[in-house]
């Protein structure tokens, strides 16, 4: 009987936010239809490195395992991807796993993406439906608008679009494509539109839409195929129009 096929994995590990990173290599038994999350689970079951040293299970985030929760984004062979949809058979080995580089590392492959959450709060990425009394039904949404809104609503806040953006880095607090696209989504909604001005104003603030330099990497990296460059262009137009009208007419 031949030797079982192996999957070689190199994982960048870091014990905590302030610890120095180090690399560990693992050799796992190959199975059909393996993805990167399965590899990490196998390591958790038997946390032994390739050269036989005992180690700790690798920390990572995952939940849905079908590319809808957004938690498992990481650098796989240097590219921002979702680990649950990264099939081992389609990846050259050794497979290199690193945490996203634009967010602070919590431990190993788990990063803290609260920057995105804070940005979503800054632009009021929600629809106000609560009041001190029953606000009743909102206006209906035209089917055409629904069709435009649906793809935008699929954002899973994975952070890949920020990871690949040259304008998102430690010198620049650019909010990134996802947030701009969410402003478009909520401004498109008939009830959400009641806060349209404030959202645009937030986008014209520091780290806002003007920091986009049109490298157009975001749209290539988005696992949900959201038309991010269209969203940015559209919001850019709305923003400067609002700024100009505000300046001309107060």
């Amino acid at each position: 009987m031949g030797e079982t096929k192996k999957v070689i994995l190199r994982v960048k590990r870091q014990a905590g936010p302030k610890h120095a990173p180090r690399w560990e290599e693992f050799a796992l038994n190959w199975r059909p239809a393996m993805n990167v999350i399965i590899c990490l689970r196998d390591i958790a079951e038997n946390p032994v490195t390739r050269d036989g040293k005992k180690t700790t299970p690798v920390t990572y985030e995952s939940n849905c395992l079908e590319e809808v929760c957004g938690s498992c984004a990481m650098l796989i062979n240097g590219k921002a991807r979702m680990a649950c949809s990264a099939l081992v058979d389609s990846l050259p080995q050794p497979i290199r796993l690193e945490p996203l580089s634009k967010f602070p590392v919590v431990r190993d492959l788990a990063v803290d993406r609260s920057f995105m959450f804070e940005s979503l709060k800054r632009v009021k990425a929600w629809i106000p439906i609560d009041g001190t009394y029953d606000l009743g039904e909102g206006p209906r949404m035209a089917p055409e608008t629904q069709e435009q809104a649906y793809p935008l609503s699929r954002c899973i806040s994975c952070g890949n679009c920020l990871e690949v953006c040259p304008q998102v880095n430690e010198n620049n607090a650019f909010v990134g494509a996802a947030i701009i696209s969410q402003v478009r989504l909520f401004n498109m909604h008939p009830t959400g539109a009641m806060h349209a001005r404030e959202r645009l104003e937030a986008l014209m603030g520091p780290g806002g839409i003007a920091d986009c330099a049109n490298a157009q990497n975001c749209v290539k990296a988005c696992p949900k195929e959201i038309p991010l460059t269209e969203s940015i262009a559209e919001m850019n137009r709305q923003a400067w129009k609002q700024a100009l009208l505000g300046w001309l007419f107060g």
Partner: peptide, 20 residues
């Protein structure tokens, strides 16, 4: 603006990124 950005065209060699 250049100093505030951080080119990553070696990691993501897409056309738009090259133009950037």
């Amino acid at each position: 603006i250049w100093l505030k950005g951080k080119s990553n065209v070696s990691d993501y060699p897409w056309v738009g990124n090259w133009l950037y």
